[in-house]
């Protein structure tokens, strides 16, 4: 009896927690359906949703290039996710399945970059991009190239590979498989969960990029989505909160879908890496 009561207690607690956690997002969803006048109504219109949602979305697509921004951000994020994964797997292969002079120094060189976020070196980095003349000629390279290698991925795959039984690589060597053959036919099939987890982290990190594209000074149609959201804050003298929230909602949908699709891989990818 008492046990059942605690069960109900937990259910009620969780429902309350979910509501509190979801509240700001639900509120954003509600505001995104309001017209300009309704968004400034007293008392605030909390329920029911109004009719202006699709109008606001259309406003974003027509007036603020959101179609370009979404396609652009999606392309940039996918390119970074794929190359990062490939580079990190190669580096993990080198660190786990080889023994070579300078291994620890090189590993430390990679490790140190964990503490060197791009946010700190925006000025010299944008000077470098200016020297390469990428801002005008190939803005997508300016948005992707600085993020193609990272310590996080190297760590994740190094950790994952070192948990894989040594017998597998011994057997592969006896069969005469080259390291790359071993990577493709043995390691890759065993790594999809980690690849999924890594992809989620990197995709969301790229999708959330804000400071770097702002300071690059790209023209608006080459920009990334977060810059677009931020720019809808000031339209004329008064911020159109309905439009702004619609921008926020729209900008959150792709990462939500990506995350939803790979959530299982994400959870089990990290489950694998933690037991040593």
């Amino acid at each position: 009896m008492g046990n059942q009561r605690t069960q109900y207690g937990i259910h009620i607690g969780l429902i309350l927690v979910c509501l509190v956690v979801a509240f700001p997002a639900l509120y954003a969803l509600q505001v995104s359906t309001l017209t300009l006048e309704e968004a400034f109504a007293v008392p605030p219109k909390l329920f029911p949703p109004s009719t202006d949602f699709f109008n606001n979305i259309r406003g974003l697509f027509e007036g603020q290039n959101f179609d370009r921004l979404i396609v652009n951000t999606l392309t940039v994020s996918m390119v970074v996710v794929i190359t990062k994964t490939a580079f990190a797997m190669l580096a993990g292969l080198a660190f786990v399945y080889f023994n070579f002079p300078g291994k620890w120094v090189l590993f430390f060189v990679v490790l140190l970059t964990l503490l060197m976020p791009t946010e700190l070196i925006l000025v010299p980095l944008s000077n470098l991009i200016a020297d390469l003349e990428w801002v005008k000629d190939s803005p997508q390279l300016a948005l992707t190239m600085p993020f193609m290698a990272s310590a996080v991925g190297v760590f994740l795959f190094r950790q994952h590979f070192s948990n894989i039984p040594r017998e597998l690589s011994e057997a592969a060597q006896l069969d005469g498989a080259s390291p790359l053959q071993f990577l493709f036919s043995v390691l890759l099939p065993m790594s999809w969960n980690v690849i999924g987890a890594h992809a989620v982290i990197q995709f969301i990190a790229m999708w959330h990029q804000y400071a770097w594209p702002v300071f690059l000074g790209l023209s608006i149609e080459d920009q990334m989505i977060q810059v677009g959201v931020r720019q809808s804050v000031i339209v004329g003298t008064q911020t159109d909160f309905g439009l702004l929230m619609a921008a926020g909602v729209l900008a959150s949908i792709p990462p939500l879908i990506f995350f939803g699709l790979l959530q299982k891989q994400f959870m089990s990818g990290f489950a694998l890496t933690r037991d040593k």
């Binding site: 927690v17 979910c18 956690v21 979801a22 700001p24 997002a25 509120y27 954003a28 505001v31 969301i204 999708w207 959330h208 804000y210 977060q226 959201v229 931020r230 804050v233 909160f241 702004l244 929230m245 921008a247 926020g248 900008a251 959150s252 990462p255 939500l256 990506f258 995350f259 939803g260 959530q263």
Partner: peptide
């Protein structure tokens, strides 16, 4: 409970602004 992870700092700022 975990999906707010997919919401960016800018969008968070925008929601709290409102």
């Amino acid at each position: 409970l975990v999906w707010p992870y997919a919401i960016s700092p800018v969008v968070t700022g925008v929601i709290f602004l409102s």
